[in-house]
Design a protein around this nucleic acid. Structure first.
Lengths: 125, 125
DNA sequence: TTATTAATTAACCGAAAGGTTAAATGAGAT
DNA sequence: ATCTCATTTAACCTTTCGGTTAATTAATAA
């Protein structure tokens, strides 16, 4: 998987892990603490924490026999930065305009709604 | 995987798929067109497109023998919306302050009023 | 009809994900 | 020393992922 962005998205692609992050946003927590809301064995949680740690989304400290986890949001920022590159595609007004432009691109002159497809040599651009 | 957010993040957790989305941001493209920059078989690309389609990030049309793919950014918006909930954690100044507050939480400073170091029963909060 | 081009489906494969239980480790508390 | 609690590691299992090649479907061109 190698690259940071992939490992961040992959870490976020699990509801348990997102719930853990949500929990951590109100402060550091021990592992058992984090496990409590989940119907899942402790080792399973420990593995999830491993994934989050490897992707840089948490750091684990040491406090006697507890290993308090802390949120580190830097990778989240990187994810958002990537996603922002697509903002124009979901901004409402542009979205519609865009759909329209794409429609034009896909079926150049032709009557508005179309569907009646006559043979063409090249794919839509 | 079920939930939308998971399937979006999971779709984004692959560099090939992100590259495909990037390519689509300049307009609809045929499958072979999308495959061209990748050192990978066509069926592999087709599978990636299947993942993107199932997560709602693209739609596939029909134009003669071509299946032009179009970007649909709605799921990206949902991903960003989720991530925005963590913005305060990466905003620079707050980040430092936060680290400091968390440090305090984790190891309460030397007691103002005795407390005299004696074992603690509960983890840091 | 046959051939060509675009794309998907089928069948398979090895590796990684996500879970389990059981055993091991670490740090106090007694 | 020993007990107990918090957590991780080991070993295992099943499913999903990401890729392959070979065969199939769909549409057009000759």
């Amino acid at each position: 998987m190698a690259d940071r962005l992939s490992s961040t998205f992959s870490a976020l692609a699990d509801p348990t892990r997102r719930a853990i992050l949500a929990r951590l946003s109100s402060g550091a927590r021990s592992v058992t603490d984090l496990a409590e809301p989940h119907d899942m064995s402790l080792p399973a949680i420990s593995k999830h924490l491993g994934v989050l740690e490897r992707s840089g989304l948490i750091v684990r400290g040491r406090d006697a026999q507890w290993r308090p986890c802390r949120l580190r949001a830097q990778p989240l920022k990187e994810a958002v930065d990537w996603l922002e590159g697509y903002r124009r595609f979901w901004e409402e007004s542009l979205d519609r305009l865009d759909d329209y432009l794409r429609e034009l691109q896909a079926r150049p002159p032709a009557p508005a709604k179309d569907q009646g497809r006559r043979p063409r040599k090249r794919p839509a651009r």
